[in-house]
Design a protein around this nucleic acid. Structure first.
Length: 888
DNA sequence: AACTTCACG
DNA sequence: ACGTACGTGAAGTTC
């Protein structure tokens, strides 16, 4: 009537029912570790078949949650007498949940309800929306749900075949309308669920009665019309019949907030499913579906045509550059600031490849190539633009005009993967395999750059794969609604980061050495005292030796153990301090030794003699939450909390005399993000009124006025706020506050009673994780949580906390990254001399000439606060001084 | 290479 | 009952 009618089909699976069917239908297979997999296998074949034959656009697998449902409140014998689920089957449920997740199918369960009720509710919702629905189950009761749009697929003989029941089919077979299925069961009962019905009434009699009277109520009302013994039986068991009918009625008003949109199904990802099948050892399916992928090695792969460019042919190369699609640079070593560029492979639009050895890059004849690399208008696809740009920089070559970075895309599509090597990406996205670098170069001491033949072949393969990956990755980004995240945030950020790293930050080596000298004296004195107190010399850095001294020799109480022996961490030592004077000396020693080794000696080693600066390297594709990380040296963990360490910051100075270090940090960005995404009114109010959020939390949780919040209450409230951001648990909070778990639990309950929006968010986000298998940030950054349905309590709890934390930490990361891109743009437009130097998660550090101080003090917070509009204001504090220490 | 400890947000 | 707070990187010791 109005526009195009899109055909949508929702499949709803009764997970428990199908698992049961599969289990009893198939022989008890088990894999090499002795785990049974027959039900999982049956479930798999069922899913594959449904996907192929039904082509669902929406999908849900519903599971029963727990043992007790609302039905037990009415009839405690419900499902009583049923044989316990055999362990061979129950052990398969976690696998089935993982399997469903690997298929990318949403799953759902709700405490107190059975899968039937969830499905009943979904069919009602889908029916209202006009979707076609297929319900897959082994349970005949579900036939009551059949309607114009809802078809019931009942498993038949095992699970290999299903029989489809429309209302017509039900009428043909039983002469009933779907609703009367409930009456049928009310009369005949169901032995397997311990529903009594009327004794002596089986299917035949029940059908006869229903054909005549229509419903249980009618049968009971007109029992007198019925002849013989049946009349007495019916009268005698009238209540049983009524209750049985009630028990058999599927509840279609389950209070769930699941939206149909959340059930969209776009099909499975071969590599994910392949990995699951490998785990389950479903070899036949792997082969049949050709999911083997991965590191198949180069044998099977087609040879790739690659020409090695020589000095004499560099001129000819210049003419070919217009036809380059992708470039792969091989830069060995972890730190691109000090790495060797070995060469590059150009993948031409013809499919052929050219290899340029690194030594040619410096040749005068390579000028056209260098110009092409630096040409903003010469588009090129690369892997890790940021790293390449840095690596080339130290060779005096610029890289510009990159149109797509494969690494960043791969990272966004699954930030939890530990690496995204091209070898892995080939497997992940089902493209022709590329050997692992390790197999070509060797690793560790055996690392060796191979001869030009195999080297050029390998790089050519990688460049070729880059070109092939691009359409696939673009497609995936689009599907995940990550275009903005990619094109407006991560991709432009890569160049901002490269620029910051190339610039570096000046470190005053002389001051640092002097500080190290002072530290050295203090450390020596402490060491002497410790040896004396211990009565022997030993390696204080060795936890093993330290443990022997403290616990065996001095007989101090063991507070905590580690995997390998006694724990001697700061928490333990603080508890031991009252017992022996040596302990506090050890704590002091630890503190100073850390400063000396990591921050004095470590930092000195990282100062580049050519520049007198340290050039950190930001990893943009490591952290699962979307944060950056910093290496060589790590400039995101320079001491600040303790004054002694904080002094280190004095050696970080501006590059030019008379300039300032300016630091701008977000105030409480994570709690502001939480206020925004949870929509919690009280939390929002706190920030809208620019209150001290910990004090406000203390007021609300303890129910006192602002004046009555003492330091201790604020401290506890602060710990609770931290806990909330981390995905709170009573245990974690009790550890942090040194209180009992019970007290911690009461705190948390108090908090949630007040901040109900936050509680709602926490429940909701975990539910989302369970159904989708992932959670997202404000800018659609995704984090997958494969353990969210694990049967192992620890794994599952960890995943739940991660589900709560990641959107918060990740959204904060989104915001500051967005600000960085915008600030870089503004600074370029305003043509300032000031430079952005560092990012420390919620802080940006700049060096600023005196005459730009006023401008930057205004520009930086303005952009940071406006980077992303939230329901609460973002607040930024700005400070500056002659070094990083003074910018406080 | 694994483990422990500790620095930061 | 279970037993960890979330996210990183670096240094030192031990195996």
């Amino acid at each position: 009537m109005n526009g195009v009618y899109v055909l949508e089909k929702l499949i709803l699976i009764d997970g428990n029912s199908i698992a049961n069917r599969a289990f009893y239908a198939l022989p008890l297979l088990s894999n090499s570790s002795g785990l049974h997999t027959n039900a999982v296998f049956g479930f798999t074949t069922m899913l594959l078949k449904l996907i192929e034959e039904q082509k669902p656009t929406h999908f849900l697998v519903a599971f029963d949650a727990g043992k007790v449902t609302f039905r037990h409140a009415d009839y405690k014998e419900y499902k009583g007498g049923r044989a316990k689920t055999p362990p061979e089957l129950s052990e398969q449920f976690p696998l089935i949940r993982e399997l469903v997740q690997a298929f990318g199918i949403p799953q759902f369960e709700l405490a107190g309800y059975e899968a039937d009720d969830i499905i009943g509710t979904m069919t009602r919702l889908a029916d209202e929306k006009g979707l076609d629905v297929v319900v897959v189950t082994g349970d005949k009761d579900m036939l009551q749900l059949a309607s114009e749009h809802v078809t019931i697929a009942l498993t038949r003989k095992g699970i290999s075949e299903v029989e489809l029941y429309t209302p017509e089919a039900i009428r043909e077979k039983y002469g009933l309308v779907p609703k009367q299925i409930i009456d049928l069961k009310g009369l005949m009962g169901d032995a397997s669920d311990n529903i009594p019905g009327i004794p002596g009434v089986g299917e035949k009699t029940a059908l006869k009665l229903l054909h005549e009277y229509g419903s249980v109520e009618e049968v009971l009302a007109r029992a007198d019309d019925i002849s013989g013994k049946m009349k007495d039986k019916i009268k005698e068991h009238a209540d049983d019949a009524r209750m049985s009918k009630e028990l058999a009625t599927i509840y279609r008003e389950v209070p769930m907030e699941m939206k149909l949109d959340e059930l969209q199904y776009a099909g499975y990802e071969g590599p994910t499913l392949g990995a699951m099948f490998r785990k389950l050892e479903f070899k036949s399916l792997l082969d049949k579906m050709d999911l083997s992928g991965g590191d198949a090695g180069a044998e099977g792969a087609e040879a790739i045509e690659v020409d090695v460019v020589e000095r004499g042919s560099l001129g000819a190369l210049a003419d070919a550059l217009a036809d380059v699609e992708a470039v792969h640079f091989e830069i060995v070593g972890e730190n691109p600031h000090v790495s060797d560029v070995i060469g590059l492979a150009l993948r031409m639009s013809s499919g052929k490849a050219l290899f340029v050895p690194a030594d040619l890059l410096d040749a005068p004849e390579a000028e056209p190539l260098r110009r092409w690399l630096a040409d903003e208008d010469a588009g090129k696809i690369v892997y890790d633009m940021h790293r390449t740009e840095v690596g080339l920089h130290w060779k005096g070559i610029e890289l510009r005009g990159v149109t797509f970075d494969v690494l960043i895309a791969a990272y966004l599509l699954d930030p939890t993967e530990s690496t995204h090597t091209l070898n892995e990406l080939a497997g992940r996205y089902g493209l022709p395999a590329v050997p692992a670098d390790e197999n070509v170069f060797g690793k560790g001491a055996k690392f060796k750059v191979p001869d030009v033949g195999p080297l050029s072949e390998h790089l050519a393969r990688k460049a070729d794969l880059l070109a092939r990956l691009v359409p696939v990755l673009k497609d995936e980004l689009e599907k995940n609604e990550m275009n903005r995240l990619y094109y407006e945030l991560e991709f432009p950020l890569a160049r901002v980061l490269a620029a910051m790293e190339k610039r570096g930050i000046r470190v005053n080596a002389d001051d640092l050495k002097q500080y190290g000298g002072e530290l050295g004296k203090s450390i020596d004195a402490l060491v002497e005292g410790i040896y004396k107190a211990a009565g022997t010399e030993f390696n204080i850095n060795s936890t093993k030796q330290l443990g022997e001294i403290l616990f065996d020799k001095l007989g101090l109480p063991v507070i905590k153990k580690t995997k390998t022996g006694y724990s001697t961490d700061a928490e333990v030592l603080e508890k031991l301090a009252p017992y022996h004077e040596v302990v506090s000396s050890i704590l002091n020693y630890r503190q100073l030794a850390k400063l000396q080794s990591t921050y004095v000696e470590g930092l000195l080693k990282e100062i580049r003699p050519e520049t007198g600066k340290v050039h950190t390297y930001y990893q943009q594709t490591i952290a699962a939450t979307g944060r950056l990380s910093s290496q060589f040296p790590n400039l995101q963990n320079i001491p600040i909390r303790l004054e002694e360490g904080r002094k280190i910051r004095k050696v970080f100075v501006p590059d030019e005399p008379g300039w300032n270090i300016l630091a701008a940090d977000y105030s409480q960005i994570e709690l502001r993000v939480l206020a925004h995404i949870s929509g919690d009114d009280r939390l929002k109010d706190a920030f809208r009124n620019d209150m001290d959020v910990h004090t406000k939390t203390a007021m609300d949780v303890f129910g006192v006025s602002e004046a009555d919040v003492d330091a201790n209450m604020r401290r506890q409230a602060k710990a609770v706020n931290f806990g909330i951001v981390y995905g709170i648990s009573d245990y974690g909070l009790s550890q942090n506050l040194n209180i009992t778990r019970k007290e911690a639990a009461e705190f948390i309950e108090q908090y949630f009673a007040v901040f109900q929006g936050v509680r709602h968010y926490m429940d909701d986000i975990v539910r989302q994780a369970r159904t989708n298998g992932y959670v997202t940030t404000l800018l659609q950054r995704r984090r997958y949580l494969p353990d969210i349905n694990a049967s192992n309590f620890n794994l599952r709890s960890f995943a739940e906390r991660t589900a709560m934390n990641s959107p918060i930490q990740g959204s904060a990361a989104d915001i500051i990254k967005l600000a960085m891109v915008q600030i870089a743009e503004r600074m370029a437009n305003e043509k300032v001399r000031s430079r952005m130097l560092l990012q420390v998660h919620d802080e940006l550090v700049f060096e600023v000439p005196e005459d730009e101080l006023e401008l930057m003090k205004k520009l930086v917070p303005e952009v940071m606060e406006g980077a992303l509009q939230l329901d609460v204001p973002l607040k930024v504090d700005v400070n500056y001084g002659v070094n990083w220490y003074e910018a406080k």
